[in-house]
Nucleic acid binder design. Structure first.
Lengths: 298, 298
DNA sequence: ATACTGCATATTATCGACAAAGAACATCAA
DNA sequence: TTGATGTTCTTTGTCGATAATATGCAGTAT
């Protein structure tokens, strides 16, 4: 099958949530912006909804006939794009399965294992190679460098360099910059989660991602901003499968974030730098501790 | 044609230079390491050389019959891999041709223009995207961000951060590290070129690449080392088509390099930092001046 | 025993093909 | 006249196929 229609299915599911019995759906172009897809896809969705007797569609009128039931939704796993599937499978293998440094990676084998064509796997590996975890031997296999302590150190070294620069730049933003309001709403979100930390500690990952991205943004430097993708993916998958002490770790980190945010608000470079250093070295320590003490792989 | 046999042709050409009439070529495995290809390719080469009456081949004996003539070589342009061809064509387009920021890039069109399949172009664009000059809109085109002053500034900002760190690390290398001997031989090469600068100023690019790579290496950080690829490709293509004041610029840069090298040899961080800063800000200035003063494109 | 050759097999790089998704243009309704 | 719809065309994402290249194994010469 030349192309999975995951864009269609995902948009269809999201469109189901817009249905309100008695009302009519908006115009096609409006649905396009709402769902973030092209008109072609919107029209496929509408046709499908007619088939399912969810709406009656006649030119401009798209009258909703009934509320969607659970059965109307496409199963979740059919809505993620091929590259997402490949990424998940691959990360699982190299972060969990015994993936020793030096191991060879075989495009064909990987493709067969995941059940996709080689092209998709190849493209994924090329994209993934910028994360510094694999190396290509042209005309031959890929070599896994492994998620080692060494890797974590190199990663966090650069991270600290970049984030210090970004944080200082952030502190220097004019007071009317939109980033400040975003920072304030993030601060509130932190406080909310902290108030119910025992039950909501898992929400920290998302806060972490949002805060750090917001800060990198202030650097105005695409290389710094892009580098954060590496941090994000590593932390995302690593902590997804490594939840030891998560409650404690996240609670501590939220407090550090709040300090960090306060420091930013002072606009004082020295204060920002100090708070930034504190948080980052604490993050580094957690990461290091979660890696097996001496061995290479995770 | 599923695969260009450029590996074969390139290795064949290089193998031609190993022929000495009267002698025998080494064993197959030895040729493999010598040429950097697999035994299969080596054996294809040997067969071809038999066809061309260049050698007589019988098991272990590969007696050279005659010296190769110009006509024995494959034309140079058939020896570069597809991705090299695509890279050159593409860089030419975006660094020379009127490539305004915001322009759309079309895989199919690019593929037709270069005369290759879409897959190769796609893979190239994915690999190239890490250089921060293009952005992908999934399910749609790529967007050219353009080789603008803004880009050059972001690039050199990170470069300076990284190289300062690397240079200081270099200064701290133990005296018996192999890097010091490499540095000394590089120094001599600089002096040699400088002595005949009027005729050899074009050799500076290679010296520049070698020196900076050697220094980044000392950081021991894959992200820093990999980042230099971006610098290298940008400088390589940019100055290849922009030779204004090259003699003067390169002469000056060689002197700065010599200072820089001396500073490294002192092992004193402050001296290194000062020389590094001097050279990098001078390099930044040259790059900026070679870009059109205000406009976006090159 | 070691290292090379001969042969068979596996993997990569590249292409063309095709459904899904996007984009362009003509037509039509308010 | 503006904006939505109907229609058509183009491009992307993915696959399978195939030559080029690499790799593994068995036999053979030193």
């Amino acid at each position: 099958m030349p192309k999975q229609n995951t864009v269609f299915k995902d948009a269809y599911n999201r469109c189901l949530r817009l249905l309100v019995v008695g009302e009519s759906l908006p115009s096609e172009p409006e649905l396009c912006t709402l769902l973030g897809v092209s008109r072609t896809t919107v029209r496929s969705i509408l046709s499908q909804m007619v088939e399912a007797s969810l709406i009656e569609w006649n030119k401009r009128s798209k009258a909703v006939q009934r509320s969607p039931t659970k059965a109307d939704f496409f199963p979740e796993h059919e809505t993620s794009s091929l590259s997402e599937v490949i990424e998940r499978t691959f990360m699982k293998r190299i972060l969990m399965g015994g993936a020793e440094p030096g191991m060879q990676i075989n495009e064909l084998e990987l493709a067969r294992e995941i059940g996709v064509g080689t092209t998709s796997v190849r493209e994924f590996l090329i994209r993934f190679s910028r994360f510094g975890l694999i190396d290509k031997r042209p005309n031959s296999h890929w070599v896994l460098k492994g998620f080692t302590r060494q890797f974590a150190e190199e990663l966090t070294d650069v991270r600290e360099m970049f984030e210090l620069k970004s944080a200082v730049a952030f502190a220097g933003l004019p007071s009317d910059d939109a980033a400040w309001t975003e920072l304030e709403s993030l601060r509130r979100a932190h406080v909310e989660v902290l108030a119910d930390i025992d039950r909501r500690y898992l929400e920290f990952s998302e806060l972490d991602d949002r805060l750090h991205r917001l800060i990198q943004q202030a650097s105005g430097n695409r290389f710094i901003i892009d580098f954060y993708d590496i941090i994000a993916i590593v932390f995302h998958y690593h902590y997804q499968w490594n939840k030891a002490n998560a409650r404690e770790r996240n609670g501590k980190a939220i407090l550090e974030h709040l300090d960090y945010i306060e420091a930013l608000k002072t606009h004082r470079p020295e204060a920002v730098e100090a708070a930034c250093r504190r948080h980052l070295s604490s993050a580094r320590l957690s990461l290091m501790q979660s890696l097996s003490p001496t061995a290479g792989g995770i």
